[in-house]
Design a protein around this nucleic acid. Structure first.
Lengths: 161, 161
DNA sequence: CTAGATGTTCTGCTCAGCAGACTATCTTGT
DNA sequence: ACAAGATAGTCTGCTGAGCAGAACATCTAG
């Protein structure tokens, strides 16, 4: 004899609402960037050299590979990234940021951070960190996604602003 | 002089991955239910009598009102909900669960709970509660959504299984 | 060297869901 | 009481995001 869950006890519901809210604010910040919020994520992924090929980035971001193609077309058209042949595998393309791309990324990064803080405003500072950390662990380690890399967060020094 | 964020430090990225992962598992559980995961959420929302009209439910779930129409068409066609005229406002329809709907909801509830636990497996039990709680607070109180009800979680006794 | 797997691109298409109009009803001001 | 505007629900039409599938190049294994 159990009592059915209230809607607002449903993880999916909360997840959906928060994600939508975040997406909406992010959309404002990245307005003008080709590909919208995902364009930003592509830049971010390409920037830390861990995943470089189109497919790897696509998997990490959860987008279809065919979508990745025109996403990159637009970003490349805007002069933010370049497709370079992968020296190790001539089928693959390495996605690397241009100087403009790196600048743009840094700028977006800062503005998105601010937006995130606004989104998380109702939580205490310590709670915000907790939330970030828990989500990060779920997203990296947990995702039954096939592409679960389970990467440890290491210090990297590439391309500071 | 800041260093650009790593992808996996991005809240949007983590949120997206976790949401997608959750959606995928949820999809399996509710396979066969009209409207998929959102069909479930409609049932859940209609079940606790706080929000009953179509529009209110639509706003709470973040779906367009025109979408709500055919969502309910399907659920009604499956005999899970009924549209009743709202005695207080003859424009509005009250969405109420049928007996079958309530049974189905209880069953789905249980199975979704299990799925959620699997999703949250990489976290400690205490951490899972923390995550749920933080997300819930963001979703209810925080959402700059217009429909931020800021409801206190009160005990309700309606319709246990 | 063949057979199959993998990375990328292109074409075609489907379908989810928005905009906009329409009806019925509620609300507010005078 | 009535006009004017807001709101709940429904229906129609359309757009476009993104998937399936094939094509092509290249890698890997046997």
């Amino acid at each position: 004899m159990t009592t059915p869950q209230r809607v607002d006890a449903d993880l999916g519901w909360a997840l959906g609402r928060v994600t939508r809210a975040h997406l909406r604010t992010a959309q404002e910040v990245v307005s003008g960037l080709p590909g919208g919020p995902r364009g930003y994520q592509v830049l971010a992924a390409a920037n830390d050299g861990e995943v470089t090929t189109q497919l790897a980035i696509a998997r990490m971001l959860g987008v279809d590979r065919t979508v990745m193609t025109y996403l990159l077309d637009e970003l490349e058209g805007a002069g933010l990234v370049e497709r370079r042949p992968d020296p190790a595998d001539r089928r693959a393309r390495r996605v690397v940021l241009t100087a403009t791309g790196r600048e743009r990324l840094c700028d977006l990064d800062r503005r998105l951070r601010e937006a995130e803080e606004r989104l998380l405003a109702p939580l205490e500072p310590a709670e915000r960190d907790t939330l970030r950390e828990l989500l990060r662990r779920l997203a990296t380690g947990a995702a039954h996604d096939g592409a679960s890399a389970c990467q440890v967060a290491e210090e990297i020094g590439t391309g500071d602003c």
